[in-house]
Write a protein that binds this DNA or RNA. Structure first.
Lengths: 255, 255
DNA sequence: AAGTGGTCTAGACCACGCC
DNA sequence: GCGTGGTCTAGACCACTTT
């Protein structure tokens, strides 16, 4: 293979080794990963375009993309649709054993949270919800849909159901702050028990759209049922997370 | 696993609709997903080969593979390297709040567990291990590497470190059964606290090799530090799971 | 309007699992 | 030894984001 010639101002990706290693997708992967780990590419930095990476490696675009998919699966990079590939920052640690708000645990980790309310409305309980809340199908519920950001990146989309009997008039409060705090301060609600399920998934089309990412990207689905001390369901929550943004940590006594 | 042979009559994949929908990768995905949900394809059944799927859809092989990757990310199918694509069975539910053995919770869910000991040896504590166990780097530890199966499929590979002071002569026991049971019965050890971290990841080359899957496949890394009532570290465990095989369920009082 | 990623085609060769 | 998936090439056009 002829040596690639430097252009007017070559970026680091022009200097990738010409060896067999960098021509194949794992070699390309390793080159990019090395630049990320070395700090050449900071968190949230944008990678060169796929076509630029081609010129640096001599590989076909499909090969470059295979390398990028690999890095994405590893949680090292993420993408914004039709905009580019970016370096993933460190994941947020989430501890489901604490009834702590998104805002407080993100802030405590030195990151900047933001919440956007997508919709807030009265709905009728589906079969799923009626089983959780122990009400008849069709019974009234509040449904909130929110998008949450860390350092400006949308990382999670959630749908929350709340029983209006426990929080009448909930929709009149500010729902772009902490729901935890609203429930605590305005309704005196405290959570005594959490039932949480977590499962790797592909982002649903709806979640992907809301997160402005490609549908089918790897994600993590967290569902949470919170109960108060009397066993009443306070919140029923579905959260779709970008898989690279989250790390779960549990610390508990066992039985 | 026997692959369906070509018959005089075409298989179901020949009957995929000819519309635009089935020519593109999401259409191909939907067709296959429909056959899985309908029950035409049972759990652990082998899909037609990629080239057979091509003839059924008229799509290029790359398009068929994009559909298969999508289904894989969704946890609907898995692959065995160079053997084929298979339908994923329901995931195993793992509850980290209980000190329960793999064997017991898999059995309780009507599935068949198996454990294979890959290696068992004396090692010296690395920096990582020494921090966890509170010993000097280089201090003696036992290291176990095991591969675990559910219904004959390898779904997880684990590396366990144990402090020999808490379980002298551990390596002389049968380590293909439950380590939990060995520690409990032979050493009187009981676990009082678990610290667990879970993070979506790509399977390391080593883990992928041991699971006989392609390196870089999506996985879930579970690390667990178990302590006894006196705060001594009993086990330090790293588990790499196939991401479609596992679902985490936590049920706890909150504080 | 330009540049990006998203999708797709139609080939090819290889390494490995399985028989 | 055959069929499988794994990898790679070298194009092409499209939809969307960004400027």
């Amino acid at each position: 293979m002829p040596r690639k010639k430097s252009l007017d101002r070559p970026g680091w990706w022009m200097d990738l080794p010409d060896s067999t290693e960098s021509r194949h997708y794992l070699g390309v992967r390793d080159s990019i990963a090395a630049h990320i780990h070395s700090g050449d590419l900071a968190a949230n930095a944008c990678l060169p375009s796929e076509r630029q990476l081609q010129t640096g490696t001599g590989a076909a675009r499909g090969t470059v993309r295979a390398a990028l998919f690999q890095l994405e699966a590893e949680g090292l990079i993420y993408r914004k649709e039709r905009s580019g590939w970016y370096v993933s920052p460190a994941p947020i640690v989430y501890n489901p054993t604490r009834w702590e708000s998104f805002i407080s645990y993100v802030t405590a980790q030195g990151r900047t949270p933001r919440t956007e309310l997508l919709s807030a409305r009265d709905v009728q309980a589906t079969a799923d919800c009626s089983a959780v809340f122990g009400v008849k199908p069709g019974a009234p519920l509040y449904e909130l849909r929110r998008r949450r950001y860390i350092d400006g990146r949308a990382v999670l989309i959630e749908t929350i159901f709340v029983d209006p009997r426990l929080a009448p008039g909930l929709l009149e409060h500010d729902l772009e702050t902490s729901l935890t705090e609203v429930l605590r301060h305005h309704y005196g609600t405290d959570v005594a028990r959490n039932r949480i399920e977590m499962q790797p998934c592909a982002l649903t089309q709806e979640a992907a759209l809301a997160l402005r990412v490609k549908s089918g990207l790897p994600g993590l689905l967290v569902t949470r049922i919170s109960e108060d001390a009397r066993g009443r369901v306070v919140e029923y929550d579905h959260e779709y997370w970008c898989h690279d943004a989250l790390k779960i940590s549990v610390d508990i006594g066992v039985g």
